[in-house]
Amino acid sequence: MSEISANLRTDAVIADPSASGRTAPGRPAARPQRRSRRRAMPGPIVLTALQAALFAALIIAWYALVRSKALPVFFFGDPVLVFQQIVSWFVTGEIFVHLATTLIETLLAFLLGVASGIGIGLWLGLSPLTAALFDPYIKALNAMPRVILGPIFIVWFGLGIGSKVALGVTLVFFVVFFNVFQGVREVNPVILANSRMLGANRRQLLTTVYIPSALSWVFSSLHMSVGMAFVGAVVGEYLGSARGVGYLILQAEATFDVNAVFAGIIVLTVFALVLDLAVTLVEKRLIVGKPKS
C-alpha cells in the first residue's frame, strides 16, 4: 500500500520536472525512480552528445567491419575513402555545378507544382461539378507510381532540366492540389457567412477567404512539397542526365565506384536537410496568423 503511494508520488515527479529536486528528500524508495527519470530524458546537450556518439559508433563499426574483411569492401565501400571523395568534390569545385543543377530543378519543380496545385485546387474546390467529373481521373493519377513517368518525360523534354522539373511537378502537384482542394472545401463556414454579411462579392470571397484559407493548408505541407520536388529532381537525374547529384551517383554506379555512390548519397542527405531547414525559416516568416489548430 505504502509502496503504491510512493510510486504514485514519483510518477507525479516524472510528470513535473520542476518539482524534482524538492520531493521526498528522506524517502529512499523514491531515489531509484528519480534516477530512472534522468535516464528517460537527458538534457539537450547530453542528448546531442549521445547522438554524435551513436553516429561515430556506426561509422567506426562500418570501418572496422570493412577493414577486417568481415564485409567485402567492393560492395560496402570504405568510410575513409567516401570522406575523401566528398572532400575532393568540394576542393576541386566539381560538385558545385551538380548541386546548383539539382537545386534549380528542385526549385522550379516546387514553384510550378505549387502554382498549378493552387490553381487547379481552387478551381475544382469551387466547382463541385468539375470536381465530380475529374474525380476518378485524379484518383487514378494519384494512385499511379508517378516516378514511372520519368522515361516518358525524358522522351518528351530531353535529357536536360525539363524532364526533371516535369517529374518533380507531377509529384509536388498532388500534394498541393489535395491540400488546396481540402482547404477550399473546408473553409470555415462561419467566416464565409461573416464575409458575406460584411458585403463581400464572389471575387472578394475568393481573394479574402478562399485563397488565404487554402494557403494556410499549403504552408502546412511545404516540407512535403519541397521533399517531393527534390525526389523528382534526383530520380529524374538518375534516370538519365548530364548534370546533377543524381547524375554523379549514376556515373559512379556505372564504374562500380561504390565509395562515390555513398558519397553522393551523403551529399544528397545533407542537401535535403539544409533545404528542410530553409523551408522552416521561410515558414516562420510566412505563417503569421496561425490558425487555431
Partner: peptide, 25 residues
C-alpha cells in the same frame, strides 16, 4: 450586421485588418 456565436474573425488578419474588412469590401 451579424454577430455570430462562433468566432468569425479571419485568423490570418490582424484585429485592425479584421475590423475594416467590410470597408475594404
Amino acid at each position: 450586421g451579424y454577430l455570430f456565436q462562433a468566432d468569425a474573425l479571419m485568423p490570418w488578419r490582424t484585429a485592425l485588418s479584421n475590423v475594416i474588412t467590410g470597408l475594404e469590401y
